[in-house]
Amino acid sequence: MSGEDDSSGWQLTESDPGVFTELLKTLGVPLVVDDLYSLDSAFLADFQPIHAFIFLFKWVSSPPEPMAGSFDPDFPGFFAHQVVNNACATLAVMNAIGNIPGLPMGQQLTELLSFTTGMDPNTRGMVLTSADWLREAHNALSPPQAISLDGLGLPKQAEDAYHFIVYMPYMGSVYEFDGLKSFPVRHGAYDEKQGWVEKARGIIEDRIGTYPPGALDFNLLAIREDPLPRLQNQLAELQTAGNESEAAHVMVKLSEENAKRERWAFENSLRRHNYLGLIHSLLLTLAKTGRLDAAKVGAKKALDERIAKRKEKGESMDED
């Protein structure tokens, strides 16, 4: 679960495909993560093969029993509990890739997963979150806050907590891996012809249906095969065969994928940057030119207007 202060050293992670893909790259796993904006079969077909869904939702206190499916206390695969706050994104990734047979991965990850073999979920979670290198990989794209307001006596407002879980196939059934649950949740066997994605789609749609109409308290990501090698091979084969029309179509897809990777790399570089020096320089320049007081007045006015609008909607917002 994310959204609470924690002294464990694990920081909040964005639900962003570029962040998750960078994490997989650091772990030596040749997969990518993509945003999904629809559960339509035709839309999902463009992302196949999909190994797992990562589902983000606003966490609310709920009964210990699963909403659907049933606990599998004898689950023979990989499952780790979340034992510290803010680690749920990486724990979700670990619970997913730990159950993909034959998946290539880096040496550190291979050794870590091997070391946890035979451990119960809680001990396994403690071992994972105690691995300094894994925590550093998790925190790499969520740097610490440069400015802390602790100790200033400012009013605090409880923030919504969000949680990542996983849906994926394992031994002919669709499973749900939630690090806050006692055991993996088995949702039953899926039809081999239709595939596991079709069954998982219904499970996720039912879960989304429990939210109020129009709610935006969730997000869905897909862990899938990296399409770049496949597209590059297709392009080479089509060009060799002289099929220029199909080759042009593949080139468009390849260009779109490369552009997406460039965007991810740029956004991740911004996440790694410390803007404290820039902020200090801007404030210093405003003060030297006599515009700092006016900027403060303008910012205060904008904040008051923002608070007023939220109050009109019945929302609470403490002035901070």
Score class of each variant (00 low, 15 high):
T110Y: 09
G179I: 08
L216C: 06
R201I: 04
S114E: 14
D160F: 02
L221Q: 10
E111L: 07
N219R: 15
L216F: 01
G214Q: 02
A161T: 15
L112A: 13
Y170S: 06
Y162I: 11
L113D: 04
S130A: 15
L228T: 12
T210A: 07
M126N: 10
F177Y: 12
I203M: 00
T117I: 12
V166I: 13
I147M: 10
P227H: 03
Q157D: 09
F183K: 07
R230V: 10
L128G: 02
G214P: 00
P104E: 11
S114H: 14
V127I: 12
L141K: 08
I223K: 06
P121L: 06
S148F: 00
P212Y: 00
W196C: 05
M105C: 11
P121C: 05
K199I: 07
F177D: 06
D217E: 12
L103Y: 06
V174E: 01
P169M: 01
Y167E: 02
A158I: 14
E136P: 00
S182A: 15
P213D: 08
A131F: 03
F115C: 11
E198A: 14
Q108V: 07
P104I: 12
H163R: 03
V174A: 02
L154F: 06
W133F: 06
S130K: 08
Y211S: 11
R224Y: 07
S142R: 05
Y162E: 10
G118S: 06
I147N: 03
H138V: 01
T110D: 11
G172I: 08
L113R: 12
V185T: 15
G188Q: 08
R124E: 02
Y175N: 07
F183V: 08
S114L: 11
N139R: 13
Q194L: 13
L112I: 07
T123L: 13
G125C: 03
Y175T: 08
